[in-house]
């Protein structure tokens, strides 16, 4: 569970302080699929960073699984991200010198697991996102959609209970974006908590709950009006093998 209590985050100092998130309180239950929408500069990405222990609040408390991240040291935050959180970014963020399999296996390799141990699981995940034939390819040999699928497989490598996705479809065409969304919905089906940031109202409606941000504050927090059940194929694809 993620719990934010009166969280604020400001950048800069002195007279040049720019508040990005202001006095936000929010609770996200395990297994929920929350979408965060809002205009550019509304603070949604900062909110995601705080939820992912990438950043720390200027004031207020961010609790992940009951732990206040402000009280955790850097290594503890790193371990939390490595083991409990999967990230999917707008720009894929794959390492150009690693193959698709190596990119997927990266979190496990950082955790000290051997190449042999991680390879099987990484290939399995690639197969599930439909990229088995591309497993030895490097990012510059993959399309945008393929790179994002590799990024999703990487996010699931450590089988984290929480997946944070920042505009994962923002850089993709609508068809490819739909495929990516299906994969994320598959993760929800596998009882993971997913928080997704988007500009697209249609995608936002796929969540169980829509949080709307404006000027760093939560403008509205309401259940999604639309269907949240993903297509059967996608659900089947992303059911965790470890679950």
């Amino acid at each position: 569970m993620i719990k934010l209590s009166n969280v604020s985050r400001a950048f800069g100092s002195g007279s040049k302080v720019v508040p990005a998130v202001r006095d936000v309180s929010l609770t996200i239950e395990p297994g929920s699929f929350v979408t965060v929408v809002g205009a550019s500069g509304s603070g949604k990405s900062t909110l995601l960073h705080l939820m992912g222990a990438l950043d720390r609040p200027t004031s207020g408390i961010v609790e992940i699984d009951g732990k206040d991240i402000a009280k955790m040291d850097d290594d503890a935050c790193t371990l939390l991200r490595r083991l409990r959180i999967g990230f999917v970014f707008q720009f894929f963020n794959l390492l150009p010198t690693l193959t698709a399999t190596e990119n997927v296996a990266l979190p496990a390799r950082l955790a000290g697991q051997s190449r042999a141990t991680t390879q099987k699981r990484a290939e399995e995940l690639l197969e599930r996102v439909g990229l088995a034939p591309r497993r030895t390819h490097r990012p510059d040999e993959l399309s945008g959609g393929e790179m994002q699928r590799v990024a999703i497989a990487r996010a699931l490598m450590m089988d984290p209970p929480l997946v944070l996705a920042d505009e994962p479809t923002g850089n993709l065409d609508s068809t490819t974006g739909a495929t990516i969304l299906e994969l994320l919905l598959g993760a929800v089906e596998a009882h993971r908590t997913v928080v997704l940031i988007t500009h697209d109202p249609a995608i936002a409606c796929k969540g169980t709950r829509i949080v709307t941000m404006a000027d760093g504050r939560i403008e509205s927090d309401r259940p999604s009006p639309g269907p949240s059940v993903p297509p059967a194929g996608a659900m089947g694809t992303m059911t965790s093998s470890n679950a």
Binding site: T78, L110, M158
Partner: peptide, 15 residues
Amino acid sequence: HEISMLRAVGATTRQ
């Protein structure tokens, strides 16, 4: 950017 990504997916400062 790459270093930030590594840190995000679980690389420690030492790594």
